[in-house]
Simulated assay, not measured.
Amino acid sequence: MYKHELYKIFTKKSLYITFFLIVLLLVFANRESILDWVMKDEIYDELYQTHGGPVTEELELMVREQMRASDAGEVSVDQATGDVQFLVAMSGLNLEQLEERKEFLASKIETLDQTTHQYLEATKELEMLKELGNPYGFYLIQAWTGMMDLIEPFFSVVLIAIMILLGLSPVFAEDHAQKTIGLVLATKHGKKSLVTSKILASITYIGVVFISLHFTNFLIQLNGYGGLHGWNAPMQSLVNYPSDYSMSPFNLNVRQFYFIMLMVQFIAGVAFGVLVLCLSNLTKNYLMTFFVSGSILGLPFILRQIGLDHGFFKTFNLFSYLEFIRIERLFDQFRTFSFFGQPILYPTYLIGVFGLVTILLLGVLYYRSKHQQVTT
């Protein structure tokens, strides 16, 4: 039954057409940035020899003097050199802000009662910041940032969501439309086996789509940049690529962060896929499932665009399928939520919440299947 469900999903021509169009979009979207890097790669390599690695006070002072001379017209610099000088100068400011934040937290902790949530939260943040050391500087991480571009931006999330919606919306609805559901439910153990087979086939499909998209993007970046340089750079060096992680408290290098993002996004994709399956079972209509699921995913984005991102709506947006899949705000700063008085990091809390939601949705699927009557 599992193989049959896989066959039903993977024989849909629309999935292959959509995937091909997405690959074309990836190639086109990366063409300009890769070409720009290739034209300047020798300059960047030379700059890395003198400006690369963690920022130091001496390097920051030298760069600021060079920037002053450039602004005064005393010397002229190319765009690549100017970008690197600005990045180094900003790294120095970020390091200063990090030290100020640690001093502020240390002073704040001394004034708080050790039994309060505020004390536990401040202590947790200070411990994480102390582990960072000096995470700021100039690193050659263009290929890694290109791979992460497929994970975070809203447009990229839409592409992944479309593949999930196209593949999974018909999973239950199609059986009802073709009136074949009764044949399966009439067999021994058919009800439970049907749901299990569809869930496993759907997770397999999500895995194949996920691996295919990210592997394709990996090949594009590898071919464009000639290698995966800077894999050991701190994740705080990811500034506006496409998100700013300069104030992130997580002690991870770029490679570790990338694989964590992949894992979290896959879990989020499976959670969203279970929602689509549940709606497909409830509505028994492919188009209804597609649009309702898509609306649930896109609602937080719409609310944010019309200014509803504070109070209740801010919390609602943070705990949404959209934020879970796009990951952007999970790791960009220190953010916790209270669980019986204990501060739990936002990514951990979000995964826990959607873990419970997904279990409930699976329970709904099995319950409806168990009590579904065979009709002719």
Rank of each mutant, 00 (worst) to 15 (best):
E65N: 04
A29G: 08
G224A: 07
E125A: 06
L183K: 07
F319H: 09
H229Y: 15
I267Y: 06
V364M: 08
G341C: 00
M288N: 14
H310N: 13
P242A: 03
T283V: 10
F290D: 02
T289H: 00
N30D: 09
T196D: 04
Y349W: 12
K8Y: 06
Q85E: 14
I17F: 14
P54L: 04
H371P: 10
F104T: 07
V195L: 10
A122D: 06
H4I: 14
Q373T: 14
S293A: 13
R68P: 03
Y44T: 01
V292S: 03
S169W: 01
N251L: 06
D113K: 02
Q79F: 11
M1W: 14
I43Y: 03
K191A: 08
Y205W: 08
T56P: 10
H51G: 09
M263D: 10
Y136D: 00
Y321E: 03
L61N: 11
I181P: 02
F250G: 04
Y349Q: 11
E131G: 07
F290G: 01
L308E: 05
E60I: 00
R335K: 11
W144L: 02
L275G: 02
E46K: 15
F324Q: 07
E60D: 09
H371L: 13
F339G: 01
F354N: 03
L132G: 01
D41H: 15
Y119V: 04
L308G: 03
G311H: 06
F316K: 05
F337L: 11
M235E: 01
F339W: 12
S295D: 02
P242T: 01
F313A: 09
A177R: 15
F210T: 00
T11H: 07
V274W: 04
V88A: 01
P300N: 01
L61R: 11
I267E: 06
L21C: 11
L360K: 01
L98I: 08
Q79D: 13
E174M: 14
R64K: 13
Y44N: 01
Y119G: 01
I22T: 08
Q49A: 14
V209P: 05
L361R: 05
M148P: 00
F313K: 02
L262R: 03
N240A: 13
V75K: 00
V195C: 08
P242S: 04
F138T: 02
S246D: 00
V208A: 15
T81G: 08
